[in-house]
Design a protein around this nucleic acid. Structure first.
Lengths: 144, 144
DNA sequence: ACGATACTGTCCGTGTACGGATCATCCGTG
DNA sequence: CACGGATGATCCGTACACGGACAGTATCGT
C-alpha cells in the first residue's frame, strides 16, 4: 500500500490562485487609494476615451480586453452617471460613438494620480528591477 | 504652452490591467482543459476539503482567501449538486461542518490532472526559472 | 436589387467578488 | 444567571465576467 492514491493540491503552487490573490490585493489598494466612485474597469474606459474619443463598444472591448457584454453594462452605468456619452454613429446605425463628457474627463484627470499610486502601492514590496521583471513575465503569459 | 495638461494612461504599464488579463488567460485555459463542470474556485474548495474534512465556512474562506459571502454561495451550489455536505456542528449550532461526498471526492480526483495542466499551459511561455520567479514575485506582492 | 453573410449591441443565465446589515448562537464577565 | 460583545452564516445591493441567443443593420456577390 502506498499513499499516492489521494491527489493533493497545493494552493501556493497554483498560478491561478496566486493571480486571483494578486487581483484581490489590487482591488483592496484601489478602494483605499482611489475609492469607490470609480472601479478600475470604469477608469480604464475613461482613460481610453480620453486618449481616443469616438470609439465604438466593440473596438473598445477589444483594446481593453473586456467582454462585449460586460463592457455594455459598464458603459450603461457610466452613461447613466453622466461620465460618457453614447451617440449612434451617423455612418453606421449599429454603432455607438462613445465620448467623454466634461464630467467624465475631469473624473479621469482627478483620479489619475491615485490610480498611479495604486500601481506603486501594489508593487511596493518589490525593487525596481523586480517590478520590471514581474510586468514583463506577466506580459509574456498574457500574449500566449 | 505644453502638452502635459492631459494625463495619459498606458494600460501596458498598469499592474492591475496585466493581472486582470492574466486571470482571463487562466480562465480560458481552465475552460479548455478542465471544462465548465467545475470552476477554479469550486475546485479549490473541493481540494481543501479533500485534504482536511470538517472545516467550517469561515475558516475555509480564510485559508482560500474567499469572501465569506461568496464562499456561502459557492458552498450552496456545491451542496445542491451533491458534491459537498453541510451539517450543523453539534458543538456549535452556528457552524456548518463541510465535507466531501463520494461524488465530490471523485470529481476532485478526476479533474486534478487537468487542473495541473492548466498551470502548465498558463506558464508554458516561460522557462522553469522564470516560472519560479513569477510565482515568487506574486507571492511577495500578495503577502503585503 | 436581393439574398446570404457578417457585424453591433442587447438580453439572459450563471458565477465570482465584496461591503454592510441582520439574525442566531456562543462566551466571558459580573 | 444575565447581559454585552464576539462570531458564523445569510441576505441585499452592486459590479465584473463570459457564453449563447437574438434583433437590427450593413455589406458583398450575383
Amino acid at each position: 500500500m502506498d499513499q499516492l492514491s489521494a491527489p493533493r493540491f497545493d494552493l501556493l503552487t497554483a498560478p491561478g490562485h496566486l493571480i486571483r490573490r494578486a487581483q484581490q490585493q489590487h482591488q483592496a489598494r484601489w478602494i483605499e487609494l482611489v475609492g469607490t466612485e470609480l472601479t478600475s474597469v470604469q477608469f480604464a474606459v475613461l482613460a481610453k476615451l480620453a486618449a481616443e474619443s469616438g470609439s465604438d463598444q466593440n473596438s473598445l472591448a477589444g483594446t481593453l480586453s473586456i467582454d462585449t457584454s460586460t463592457l455594455a453594462e459598464v458603459c450603461v452605468r457610466l452613461a447613466s452617471r453622466g461620465l460618457i456619452e453614447r451617440k449612434r454613429s451617423p455612418d453606421d446605425a449599429r454603432r455607438y460613438r462613445l465620448s467623454l463628457t466634461p464630467a467624465g474627463r475631469s473624473a479621469f484627470e482627478w483620479h489619475t494620480p491615485a490610480v498611479d499610486a495604486v500601481g506603486e502601492a501594489l508593487l511596493a514590496p518589490l525593487s525596481a528591477r523586480e517590478r520590471y521583471t514581474l510586468m514583463a513575465l506577466l506580459r509574456r503569459v498574457i500574449e500566449a
